[in-house]
């Protein structure tokens, strides 16, 4: 009966994952390998293709300053600067949507919603960037990443070519993702792993750690059993997956440092209010 409960938990979290996250790993890998009936993604590999592909990116509510300036004779460098900032803003909008999706997923974890509300906030504040970073992995390969719900493929070289510190933002995620993807987790494994990350009892400022650790232990048991069943030939996979949690924390620390640098160096930069809340006093 205990194993049945753990399987039922795995099934429940997988269903919630499919409900809340629009681009699954299965779909992303199909797009990346060209095995989909949909159109191939639009490739952004330089500033020109970024401008051409911009209509696909969800930034409609932001003023298109670059396009306005283009007609008034702004220099190429100024335009490039504005395009980079605009792209960064559209990434922020998508990130804020993704935080909302992760929140809904967290709420579906059995027992999460009856935790102290302050602790729910803390778990999300510290967990959400880790979750979003791990969810980028299925969208990436060594050459680039899918964005905009898989409609666009942006090359790693282009992201590296942006001016600092924008150029420093994605490279550590590529390095992490290429290694993480070698574990070959599928969406059902990912659902359990995300729940484990969210239910971390060592987040700073938690008021009542015990119930969180109890919930996490249950999900960990479910993950261990699920990985044994789903990947019978992959030795020590459970341990390897858990080891990734250490790398994830380093990844988030780096991300927060880059955002700090951006806030100092970019006068035009305006962080999304939800992301500001999450970043404030984080590490």
């Amino acid at each position: 009966p205990e194993a049945a409960d753990l399987r039922s938990l795995a099934k429940h979290l997988y269903e919630s994952y499919l409900k809340n996250f629009p681009l699954t790993k299965a779909k992303a890998r199909a797009i990346l390998s060209g095995k989909t009936n949909d159109n191939a993604p639009f490739v952004i590999h330089d500033m020109k293709s970024l401008l051409e592909g911009e209509q696909f990116i969800n930034c409609c509510h932001l003023p298109h300053q670059g396009q306005q300036r283009e007609s008034t004779g702004a220099t190429l460098t100024e335009l490039q600067r504005e395009v980079e900032l605009r792209f960064f803003h559209s990434c922020q909008s998508r990130s804020a949507e993704a935080v909302s999706e992760v929140t809904e997923f967290a709420k579906s974890i059995p027992g999460f919603s009856i935790l102290d509300l302050n602790d729910q906030v803390t778990l999300l504040k510290y967990g959400v960037i880790e979750v979003l970073s791990i969810m980028m992995a299925p969208l990436m390969n060594k050459d680039g990443t899918l964005i905009s719900y898989g409609q666009i493929f942006m090359t790693r070289e282009f992201l590296k070519s942006l001016r600092k510190p924008f150029s420093d933002m994605m490279e550590p995620k590529f390095e992490f993702s290429v290694k993480f993807n070698m574990l070959e987790l599928d969406d059902s494994d990912m659902a359990l792993f995300l729940a484990v990350i969210i239910l971390s009892g060592d987040r700073p400022g938690l008021l009542n750690v015990k119930p969180i650790e109890e919930l996490q232990e249950n999900v960990l048991h479910s993950l261990e059993l699920h990985l044994k069943t789903n990947h019978p030939d992959s030795l020590h996979l459970f341990a390897k997956v858990l080891q990734k949690m250490t790398d994830l924390r380093q990844l988030v620390t780096h991300h927060v440092q880059v955002i700090q640098l951006l806030k100092e160096s970019e006068v035009d930069l305006c962080l999304h209010p939800l992301l500001q809340e999450i970043m404030r006093d984080l590490y």
Binding site: S100, L117, L124, E277, R280
Partner: peptide, 21 residues
């Protein structure tokens, strides 16, 4: 803490996800 994280708090309290993101 929830006072300093009004949007996160609202996301947690609302039964559906769409908020003024």
């Amino acid at each position: 803490l929830k006072e300093k994280h009004k949007i996160l708090h609202r996301l947690l309290q609302n039964s559906t996800s769409p908020v003024d993101l």
